[in-house]
């Protein structure tokens, strides 16, 4: 198959950037989208042109490293599929394909299709954990968890942190990402002691990073390669409101001072 690719090219973070047209021929339908780009890069290199920078690592849909907005859709046209698992058989011979990086204020472009997603890490650092040290712990069977609850927590925990939800949202909001982490831990008994501190801190960090607000458009859910439901956003909002009503004294600080 033959394709015309319109690819966003940008030399560095401060560069202007523009779409550049590339053509590629002889592509088998069994190649993945990223393998097609590998091949393009081979050809560009041999011709003495700069290859296209893009992120990828595991290439089996779980590390969350790959990105790309393909024809206006994060991770391309297929539902529940990351770019690395998208195959060229889903395109038609001769198609023109537009490839852009994630577009969001909180994800600045570093080069071509590579963006900086460390804002996500800072949201997690603000509270996306249960505070435990390494060492002996009680036997897990002393704390039974209903299988449905464990499954629902896993539905949220399955988030790969790729950022498609942000790229899909017209507001550039990171609500689905943040809600997935808040819900994963908030559903489980282990996550209860820090449930409200966690949601407050994570939401505040999310806002500080420059992500937009949620206006219930639902684009995030449609773009999520792991099918994470927006019901988790509702859940996070409920927890957030409850946390606001809780006693404002930071008892943690006091405990530290003792």
């Amino acid at each position: 198959m033959k394709f015309i690719l319109r690819i966003w090219r940008q030399d560095h973070a401060k560069g202007a950037g523009a779409f550049v047209r590339h053509e590629i021929d002889g592509i088998s339908g069994d190649l993945s989208f990223l393998e097609m780009l590998d091949l393009l890069n081979e050809q560009l290199t041999v011709r003495g042109e700069a290859p296209v920078a893009f992120d990828s690592d595991c290439r089996e849909g779980v590390c969350g490293m790959c990105s790309l907005v393909i024809n206006g859709r994060p991770h391309g046209p297929n539902a529940l599929t990351t770019t690395c698992q998208l195959y060229m058989r889903h395109f038609r011979d001769g198609d023109e394909i537009t490839i852009e990086p994630w577009r969001a204020r909180a994800f600045p472009v570093l080069r071509d299709l590579v963006v900086d997603r460390t804002a996500f890490d800072r949201i997690l650092e603000a509270g996306g954990y249960v505070s435990v040290h390494s060492g002996p712990k009680p036997d897990p069977n002393s704390m039974p968890v209903e299988p449905e609850v464990a499954e629902e927590a896993l539905d949220a925990a399955t988030c790969i942190g790729c950022g498609a939800c942000v790229a899909a949202c017209p507001n550039g909001a990171a609500m689905l990402f943040t809600a997935a982490k808040v819900s994963h831990l908030g559903l489980l008994p282990q996550g209860q002691p820090e449930r409200y501190v966690r949601v407050t801190r994570m939401v505040e960090q999310m806002e500080a990073e420059g992500f937009g607000g949620c206006t219930n458009l639902g684009e995030c859910e449609g773009a999520c390669p792991k099918g994470i439901s927006i019901k988790f956003i509702g859940r996070m909002n409920r927890d957030y409101y409850r946390s606001v009503l809780k006693e404002p004294i930071d008892r943690r600080g006091r405990m530290g001072a003792q």
Binding site: V132, P136, K137, P140, E146, A153, Q190
Partner: peptide
């Protein structure tokens, strides 16, 4: 034990084990 304490949602049986 460590992983469960961190919140790793391992598969559970119907009794919660």
């Amino acid at each position: 034990d460590q992983a469960v304490a961190q919140g790793v949602p391992f598969a559970r049986e119907y009794g919660g084990m």
